[in-house]
């Protein structure tokens, strides 16, 4: 992640559930510049949907706030940050446990973080109570033909 990024985008929208599809489709359209497989794209869409939904239903609960997405493309990786300025998470480790949910009455299953972690290569949660929550996640795009040529260029550039 040290190399300079190739492209970047910012997205801000109101915390309305109708924007969940908008957010994941927009990020997928941006990510498609990296030429991911259908499956990689589907994994990203699911992870974005989880993080955005969490901002809306947990971060802001019934209030209207702003959800922010910042995405950067590197040569073969996408880094996505999704943030709210909502209520925050008191115990992040507990929140990440599979099946842990604070809203079982709303038919939540507590699988959001587990899905993000299994569909992305890296997931990091930062949160401060009453300030907000930011999820940073990344996914490497694996392209078979490209990998071999990168290896060769790396080899030839070695001292």
């Amino acid at each position: 992640m040290k190399e300079p990024f190739d492209n970047e985008m910012n997205l801000e929208f109101l915390s309305k559930s109708a924007n969940e599809a908008f957010a994941r489709i927009t990020v997928a359209a941006f990510a498609s510049q990296l030429d991911p497989t259908i499956e990689e794209l589907a994994d990203m869409k699911t992870a974005v949907s989880e993080a955005v939904t969490n901002c809306i239903i947990h971060g802001y609960e019934n209030k209207i706030g702003i959800v922010k997405i910042h995405a950067k493309l590197y040569e073969n990786e996408i880094v996505i940050e999704i943030a709210d300025s909502g209520k925050g998470i008191a115990n992040i480790e507990m929140a990440k446990e599979p099946l842990y949910t604070t809203k079982p009455n709303l038919e939540r299953s507590g699988m959001g973080f587990t899905i993000m972690e299994s569909f992305m290569d890296y997931v990091h949660v930062e949160s401060i109570v009453d300030v907000g929550t930011k999820i940073t996640m990344s996914k490497r795009i694996k392209r078979e033909e490209m990998n071999s040529s990168t290896e060769i260029s790396q080899m030839t550039s070695m001292p």
Binding site: E50, M111, I115
Partner: peptide, 13 residues
């Protein structure tokens, strides 16, 4: 064509 964790809660319900 798309389902996230909301589908789990939906089915359990």
């Amino acid at each position: 064509t798309f389902m996230d964790s909301a589908g789990i809660g939906f089915l359990v319900g």
